[in-house]
Nucleic acid binder design. Structure first.
Lengths: 189, 189
DNA sequence: GTTGCTTTTTGTCAAATGGCAAATGATTTC
DNA sequence: GAAATCATTTGCCATTTGACAAAAAGCAAC
């Protein structure tokens, strides 16, 4: 919980009363490995903060291949933004890839906080903006790099994930097959 | 100018007085083909809105290859955000790839508008947020697609650009060589 | 330890893509 | 219109990557 407070205070100031209001709305959610936080075809109903574990967001492209869009590690927010904001069906799965512990807020509570705590909206704006920038920074540059460079870039961004999650997820994030990734691993040892 | 007003009013409401304040700060900038709007190694000093023409943002990766990050077409904002906001040297070139006509705001005027017009900050937030989402949506999915699919996706996003800009820019956006792109073109005719 | 299950590695072959250079085509300049 | 310049296409060959399948390794349950 303390981690969450520190996290949000990076983005703006809140007094103790405001912090308490936020904390009162948060509930702890334990997600076992492979469980979904939100699913394609449904409307995302909650916003989360990863206390422990790793999450991934993935979808199926029009060839039916499973694509991992990004990973979310500890001390980051997790939400299917398009779906949650606009209350439309998502086309992505948000899935725990290790056992996870999250703080979650329901849509109703989240809205209430936005209405009640004046500086909260600005803070949320900044959090979202930072997340979007990270997404642009992290995945787009992969487009123009070869498979080996992509993997090296992945290692830099997510240094702790390699031994934590299946090779196939990494491959589907990098846009290469897991066989290729396996060969690349071998070659750079 | 009218296009610009319509553009910003999509993102929030402003009264006539506020609109006039904004317009008074805007100056028209004509950029000939190949000229730079902002450059790597320098601090971006202005925010622009593309009235006519096409802009691209590019950089050189660590293999010295020129990479086109994205294109900006008419009726969109153009700014090297990281550099402009934080007043740090950019590593990207923002370049006119056709003759362009822009509305521009200096850093000083831009700040003044943010301080003067209360709803302006929220509008700018939304504009930036939308731009970031577009970037994520448009380029990241290319990572996991083959060259032909990438080109088809490019055609959908920028249907008017194909005959307007050099093949090499498109190739450097898609992460393929211009020879390959030329062959792909041939194959899908 | 053995068994069953999943993940990772490896081999083989085919297809896609890149690098290079030459040929062709288009555009500008004089 | 000829020359010069730049953009695009094409051919050739090398390399990378994918698809598929089999082998090996890791792991948990018994």
């Amino acid at each position: 919980m303390k981690d969450f407070i520190n996290y949000i205070l990076q983005f703006g100031d809140l007094n103790q009363q405001q912090i308490d209001l936020i904390i009162n709305k948060a509930t702890v959610l334990e997600l076992p490995k492979d469980a979904y936080f939100s699913e394609a075809g449904k409307i995302a109903q909650q916003v989360g903060f990863v206390l422990e574990g790793v999450i991934r967001v993935c979808y199926y492209n029009n060839k039916g291949e499973e694509i991992t869009k990004y990973f979310i590690v500890e001390n980051n927010m997790v939400v299917d933004l398009e779906s949650f904001e606009n209350e439309i069906c998502s086309n992505a799965y948000v899935q725990a890839i290790t056992d996870c512990k999250l703080l979650v807020f329901s849509r109703k509570d989240w809205k209430e906080l936005l209405d009640t705590i004046i500086p909260w909206e600005a803070i949320v704006h900044k959090i979202i903006s930072k997340a979007l920038r990270q997404k642009v920074e992290r995945r787009s540059p992969l487009v123009t790099e070869d498979a080996t460079t992509r993997y090296v870039m992945f290692l830099k961004i997510y240094p702790n994930l390699v031994n934590l999650i299946p090779l196939s997820y990494i491959a589907s994030y990098l846009g290469i097959t897991q066989s290729s990734l396996s060969r690349i691993r071998k070659s750079i040892r």
